[in-house]
């Protein structure tokens, strides 16, 4: 880990609020994943074993909802922070430090692919956030909200069926499951693998925990 090489002028990549939110979401998301998948794969022995360990389906349901509130709470705090950044701090929407996709991301993507195949000697010089980080960020942002909405329908079906047809609850359940599988695979395999286990960053990219950037 590059932790000891900090100097006072090391650029700060993630501010305290983002580090804290990442840490909370990390545990909230894991909680959601293990309790949710145990229900999704309930006919399997490991899922039953895990459910037994945490005290049965009722406790899993309670834990899942608790983790959901905590995790979605982070989304709300993040959105509020974004509004403050825009209007309170008069920050920019676009530019090299922005998370908003731009034309440069497309060029970076083409450049990066060319680099994979050896057509370019060097990887592209990304802005603060690479196209991969932007895809993950926006996929997560959309995912959190669809999971939130479908999850809420499944949490309060009695209330929602006053306004929507009954079989929409089935649709919500289907979407909730497949979105969950996508999110779990992308976060546990792709995100952790590519953010931390890549030869460049192995064994871990600590900047999301320390806030300090270790590259230029």
């Amino acid at each position: 880990m590059q932790a000891t090489s900090f100097t006072p002028d090391t650029p700060i990549r993630f501010s305290v609020i983002h580090r804290l939110l990442h840490l909370v979401v990390m545990f909230g998301f894991t909680g959601l994943a293990v309790t949710g998948l145990s229900l999704g794969l309930s006919s399997t022995t490991p899922a039953r074993g895990f459910m037994w360990l945490i005290g049965g389906a009722s406790h899993a349901a309670m834990l899942h909802r608790y983790c959901a509130v905590v995790t979605y709470g982070c989304v709300v705090i993040h959105a509020l922070w974004f509004l403050y950044y825009k209007f309170g701090l008069a920050g920019a929407w676009t530019g090299p430090d922005s998370i908003v996709p731009s034309l440069k991301d497309l060029k970076d993507f083409k450049h990066h692919l060319a680099y994979f195949f050896g057509l370019e000697k060097t990887p592209p010089r990304f802005d603060k956030f690479s196209y991969m980080e932007k895809i993950e960020y926006w996929a997560l942002f959309i995912g959190m909200n669809t999971m939130g909405i479908t999850g809420l329908v499944l949490w309060y079906p009695e209330c929602f069926t006053r306004y929507i047809p009954g079989f929409f609850v089935n649709l919500a359940q289907t979407l909730h499951f497949y979105e969950a599988v996508l999110a779990v695979v992308v976060k546990f395999f792709i995100h952790i693998g590519m953010a931390h286990f890549r030869p460049e960053t192995y064994p871990a990219d600590t900047s999301i925990f320390t806030g300090r950037s270790h590259k230029k």
Partner: peptide, 17 residues
């Protein structure tokens, strides 16, 4: 450890289903 255990859980789960 938690992550690896989860992955193992999913894999064993899919195989054992």
């Amino acid at each position: 450890g938690i992550v690896l255990a989860t992955i193992a859980l999913i894999l064993i789960g899919i195989c054992g289903k």
